[in-house]
């Protein structure tokens, strides 16, 4: 279990680094898919089966398709969407120093904390049946609110980018 966790965690970190380091946005998307698959492996080794499947379907499926479509739409007209500006290029050492300092502090805080002993895990932890009971019995009201949030998002997207009738001949 811990070997799978380490391997998939390394995959996720590599994917995240790829998102930042890749030049073309499409390569970033592919690296992000690697990141999501690695995260699904992490969830699986943390015994969250349902969430691992949901991660693959929602993120690696739906969200990435959305990203790819937008990149395809945006790069139809123009060639270089990416330009390496001088804004951050000169400050790269300082940026990296700040990032490493912050990572060091956060990891130090985590390591010095005492999260307490682990509890015995019940056998049905994270299965679809347990998740269904949690979502549809215990937390059913937030679940419905989540559906409402998605509906609002869909309406917002249609309002933002949907075709409108021409002005003057409504």
């Amino acid at each position: 279990m811990s070997v799978a966790l380490i391997v998939s965690g390394a995959l996720a970190i590599g994917g995240a680094l790829g998102v930042i380091l890749a030049r073309a946005p499409v390569h970033s998307v592919i690296a992000l898919i690697v990141n999501f698959l690695g995260l699904a492996g992490v969830y699986l080794s943390l015994q969250a089966e349902f969430l691992a499947v949901a991660q693959v379907i929602v993120y690696a499926g739906a969200v990435m398709i959305l990203f790819l479509f937008v990149i395809a739409l945006l790069t139809v007209k123009r060639e270089p969407m990416e330009r390496l500006t001088a804004r951050t290029a000169g400050r790269l050492p300082l940026n990296l120093l700040a990032a490493f300092a912050m990572a060091f502090l956060v990891v130090l805080a985590i390591v010095r904390s005492d999260p307490g002993g682990s509890v015995a895990v019940p056998s049905n932890f994270g299965t679809v049946r347990a998740m269904g009971e949690t979502l549809l019995v215990t937390h059913v009201f937030p679940f419905e609110i989540a559906a409402l949030v998605l509906l609002v998002a869909v309406v917002g997207v249609v309002v933002l980018v949907g075709r409108r009738p021409e002005k003057g001949r409504e």
Binding site: A54, V63, G126, M131, L135, V149, L150, G156, V157
Partner: peptide, 17 residues
Amino acid sequence: QAFVIFVMTVAAAEVAV
């Protein structure tokens, strides 16, 4: 884990918008 589902929902809405 239920909370993760809600975070995923909000993240999907955020990406779409």
